[in-house]
Design a protein around this nucleic acid. Structure first.
Length: 553
RNA sequence: UGCCUGAUAGUAUAAUGGUAGUACGACUGUUUUUGGUGCAGUUUGUCUUGGUUCGAAUCCAGGUCGGGCAACCA
């Protein structure tokens, strides 16, 4: 396989800029607003920004876009830093738009001095109305012609706290008739008597996104400022501010944000899920947040791999969540420790097995020759999975059935001799006989069986809680589905098994191990675990060929 | 009614005027002490109409369809 991977359109721009000598090296930035937790969509942006810097020998800043004190909190800052680090990236500088408040203020003063900004006393309704519509030009109001001196005075008074919220705004004086709504004298400063998580009460006016973002990029000498498609119409304003101020010309480029099937990706909706308790928190394993995926057991590397696979383009997209799951399985298959856990037990008595405990050995991971082995007890009484037995077996059913033989993984071949039922006809246990010569690793029985089952010895079994997570929504395209997105929540997205039976090795494993419970899926120990109670989250299922086959019949 | 964007298998993404390729999915077969994994194979595509050209997914013109734009949010 040739490693000649084609470039995405942003990489092409970067290579062209570098080749033209436009920059010696590149500087990108990841600029989250600390008003929520990062989600998989942010991961795409993180991988893009940091990936570009890594690939071309540049650097990436982490910059918090904290210009709206009423929605931002330190809790979010901390979680964002943790998530970026966990994803495997290291930023050059940790910065905040709020670091630049004084500088930004001076930029605004410069604009006023150039006659390019004015204080408007109108209320928001009036401003909106005078802005016109996309098909109809806006109108210029009387405040627009205020003198520079008056604007300077008023803006200074705004800063001093002479006015209440909403009483005045500072607007850039551009073009009320522009076909681009963002150029119709956009508001660049508003009054907000709010406590800021970093600057406290030092300010009562705050710059708007459009006046903060580009200038922050410029102050940091960001060469490539990469954002999502909805900012395309902001670009002329981004460029206008930089040009009028005569500062470092950072350039904005836009790519299509990630959308994923069965998933919501907006912070607003995620917040709602948390606040209205549809999930247990930002890191509930069903959420699309980075922290949820971490808790669910997704390896950071598989998220990076996913971001690499989905590519970067300008076309709107809806990525199959199955691709993310594929990346997770691909990684985990090579690394996860194999263990046996029975979810829904059916007791099997091996009638011809002596009343002793035998210690068996089994590989930790058949994909990894250096993975080592662990031991497990085998005895006369074991549990198997209830649905690994059928009294009347259909065609192509390879599991246990009366008179049928199966192999117990890493142990012996057994044959089902008798089905024991209670008075109501429910199956309570199976009586089987084992083939002593069929022991794993030294099988001389010559018997070939199609089915291999996982099992756990009854007497030594650990009890554990298992949490089975499924997709949070029932519809593919949640954002575009009829009605409220909450109408589409999957009521069965979490199934808790209070007691499952697990092999004893799980007690001595490292707590941060990832597991494949053989034939059941990938699992990870949840942080809710205690010494008394193990709790496992299902990371992702295994591909189930039999389920498909059974469905066909 | 305006402006800005975009359109390639089911989903993504490449081909930068010269054989439409890759991944996931689906389907076959094969291997397997996980109905997992691996391996081999099959399947399905350039929105449309014109034009330029020896040659067009690519360039040009018109159309169609999708997305965005009128927060004192980012």
């Amino acid at each position: 396989m040739s490693e000649e991977k084609s470039l995405n359109f942003i990489e092409e721009i970067v290579e062209a800029d570098l080749a033209a000598g436009k920059y010696q090296s590149i500087l990108t930035r990841f600029p989250p607003e600390p008003n929520g937790y990062l989600h998989i969509g942010h991961a795409k942006s993180i991988c893009l920004n940091f990936g570009l810097a890594n690939k071309y020998g540049g650097k990436t800043n982490l910059r918090f876009d904290d210009t709206n004190p009423s929605t931002e909190e330190t809790e979010y800052v901390e979680s964002i830093k943790e998530d970026v680090k966990w994803l495997g990236f290291q930023w050059a500088d940790e910065l905040y738009a709020s670091n630049y408040f004084e500088q930004l203020y001076q930029f605004a003063v410069q604009l006023i001095e150039k006659g390019l900004a004015y204080v408007d006393d109108s209320n928001s309704e009036t401003i909106a109305q005078e802005k016109g519509t996309p098909t109809q030009a806006g109108i210029e109001n009387s405040y627009r012609s205020r003198s520079i001196a008056e604007n300077l005075q008023l803006f200074s008074e705004m800063r001093s706290g002479n006015y209440k919220d909403g009483e005045k705004v500072l607007r850039a004086k551009i073009d009320m008739a522009s076909s681009n709504m963002h150029m119709r004298d956009p508001i660049i400063y508003r009054i907000k008597h709010a406590h800021h998580h970093r600057t406290g009460d030092a300010w009562c006016i705050y710059p708007m996104y459009d006046f903060a973002h580009g200038q922050s990029d410029s102050i940091e000498n960001i060469t490539h400022s990469i954002c999502t498609l909805e900012f395309i119409p902001h670009r002329p304003l981004y460029d206008w501010c930089i040009e009028q101020l005569g500062i470092f010309p950072s350039k904005q480029y836009e790519f299509a944000r990630l959308n994923m099937t069965y998933t919501v990706m907006s912070k607003r909706k995620l917040l709602q899920l948390v606040n209205e308790k549809h999930v247990e928190g930002w890191d509930d394993p069903r959420m699309s947040t980075i922290s949820a995926m971490r808790r669910r057991g997704y390896p950071a590397g598989s998220i990076r791999e996913f971001c690499d696979k989905i590519g970067v383009a300008k076309r709107e997209n809806l990525i199959d969540v199955g691709l993310l799951e594929f990346c997770v399985r691909e990684k985990l298959n090579k690394t996860a420790l194999r263990r046996m856990v029975v979810f829904d037990p059916l007791k099997v008595v091996i009638t011809n097995y002596p009343d002793t405990v035998e210690v068996l050995e089994s590989e930790n991971n058949p994909e990894d020759p250096n993975g080592g082995t662990r031991t497990m007890p085998f005895s006369r009484e074991i549990y198997i999975e209830r649905d690994d037995f059928m009294e009347v077996a259909p065609k192509k059913y390879f599991r246990l059935a009366p008179g049928q033989m199966v192999r117990l993984k890493s142990a012996y071949i057994i044959k089902c001799d008798e089905v024991i039922k209670d008075a109501d006809g429910n199956i309570t246990e199976l009586h089987c006989s084992y083939i002593p010569e069929s022991k794993s690793g030294s099988d001389t029985s010559g018997i070939n069986v199609k089915g291999t089952l996982h099992w756990v010895s009854v007497a030594q079994a650990l009890q554990a809680e298992i949490r089975l997570y499924d997709r949070l929504f029932k519809v593919e395209d949640v954002a575009n589905a009829e009605g409220d997105f909450k109408d589409h929540i999957n009521p069965d997205s979490l199934q808790v098994l209070p007691i499952a039976y697990a092999e004893p090795a799980l007690l001595s494993d490292q707590p941060n191990s990832t597991y494949q419970f053989i034939r059941k899926g990938y699992f990870v120990l949840d942080r809710d675990s205690t010494n008394e109670k193990l709790v496992f989250n299902r990371t992702v299922t295994l591909k189930d060929g039999w389920a498909k086959e059974a469905k066909k019949a």
